[in-house]
């Protein structure tokens, strides 16, 4: 894999996105709305049972991501530029890596705004390290973008792809969501340190690696027509 080719693709996507900001603005708006609504509906319960919080936060990321992340490929498909990408000598692994990194940057952008917003809105107790919690979220989102970038291509030729993507994505993501919510709870509510969530971290990392490898191996087929 050539790093320069991956960077080139990421730069292209970021440049195009920053010019219009269609996707990122939409993602921020949607996730902000979701946090506000959750706060109104469940805010007082989270006050007494803070363990609900991280789950709600992940729900916000999931919905935001599922609506926004598929765009990276769907847009290229709709405009036909996916053909242009496939015509270049870039390997499919490079294309996948570029798209996943671009998606991760989008999610990090959302995360940096929404996570603090969430803490403020819910007056959420941060008993453990904020940085550690942020790192756990980032790790979870990394898995999220790897799997969603890979699976988003599967629905490109499907009818009602916007409906279909969440249905195939959610069950596959289930282990990451459960583990990262549990780790987040340990850190934020339990005030625990890195060593106490090592069990979860290890499995999430293994998941990221295994899913990444499968994605790389199958992506040649995914991009085919």
């Amino acid at each position: 894999m050539r790093v320069s080719a991956v960077v080139n693709l990421v730069v292209k996507d970021l440049r195009a996105e920053l010019r219009t900001k269609h996707t990122v603005n939409f993602m921020l708006l949607f996730s902000g709305l979701a946090v506000a609504f959750f706060s109104r509906i469940a805010g007082s319960y989270v006050g007494s049972v803070p363990e609900i919080g991280p789950g709600l936060l992940w729900l916000v990321f999931l919905f935001t991501g599922m609506l926004g992340l598929g765009r990276a490929f769907v847009k290229e498909k709709e405009l036909g530029t996916l053909d242009g990408l496939r015509l270049t000598p870039m390997s499919s692994a490079e294309i996948l890596a570029g798209k996943a990194i671009y998606n991760l940057l989008l999610m990090l952008g959302v995360q940096s705004v929404i996570f603090p917003l969430f803490i403020v809105f819910f007056d959420f107790p941060v008993r453990g390290g904020f940085a550690l919690a942020f790192a756990v979220l980032t790790l979870g989102n990394t898995c999220f973008v790897i799997v969603s970038s890979a699976l988003a291509t599967l629905v490109l030729n499907a009818r009602a792809r916007e409906l279909l993507l969440p249905v195939i994505l959610l069950p596959v993501l289930f282990p990451v969501i459960v583990l990262s919510v549990s780790a987040l709870n340990s850190v934020l509510v339990g005030g625990e340190g890195f060593l106490n969530i090592l069990g979860e971290i290890k499995i999430i990392l293994a998941y990221a690696v295994v899913m990444g490898v499968i994605a790389m191996l199958t992506f040649d087929f995914a991009l085919e027509e």
Partner: peptide, 16 residues
Amino acid sequence: RASAILGIFGYTSGIF
């Protein structure tokens, strides 16, 4: 093609 790829991802996710 698409369902074969999902078949592989889905099973692996089941193991996890």
